[in-house]
């Protein structure tokens, strides 16, 4: 999974670099505050467990959804973990019940802003 994550990162970064040189390995690493060699290892799948903070920063720079990138890296965001840990039974049941539902049906489970009569 981490290798797929690294491949995706590299491919996305290289695509962006074609039109914007600030997406070079070195400059992206600088923006995040990590060594270029470390980012290179992440992209090649050698470093398999970058921190949530690093993944979130990569998502922001590359314009990707942080939850999707975290999932590709085999992680779950801390806030989601906390939500589940606070009410483990109800969320475990909800997630298991919803696991095979299509996206549209899952989205309908979330709380919508109620529209009224204007």
């Amino acid at each position: 999974m981490a290798t797929q994550f690294g491949q995706f990162l590299r491919q996305r970064r290289e695509e962006l670099k074609e039109t914007d040189s600030s997406y070079s390995l070195r400059r992206v690493a600088e923006k995040i505050g990590i060594e270029p060699s470390y980012l290179s290892k992440i992209e090649r799948g050698i470093e398999k467990s970058p921190s949530e903070h690093v993944v979130n920063q990569l998502a922001a720079i590359l314009g990707e959804d942080p939850d999707v990138l975290l999932a590709m890296a085999g992680k779950i965001s801390t806030d989601l973990a906390e939500i589940i840990q606070k009410r483990p039974q109800v969320f475990a049941e909800l997630i298991r019940a919803a696991k095979n539902l299509p996206d549209q049906s899952v989205l309908r489970v979330v709380r919508e802003v109620r529209d009224g009569d204007w």
Partner: peptide
């Protein structure tokens, strides 16, 4: 319990 009735009628945020 604390917002005006018209707000509840309109719904929203």
């Amino acid at each position: 319990s604390k917002v005006p009735g018209s707000w509840l009628k309109h719904g929203g945020v």
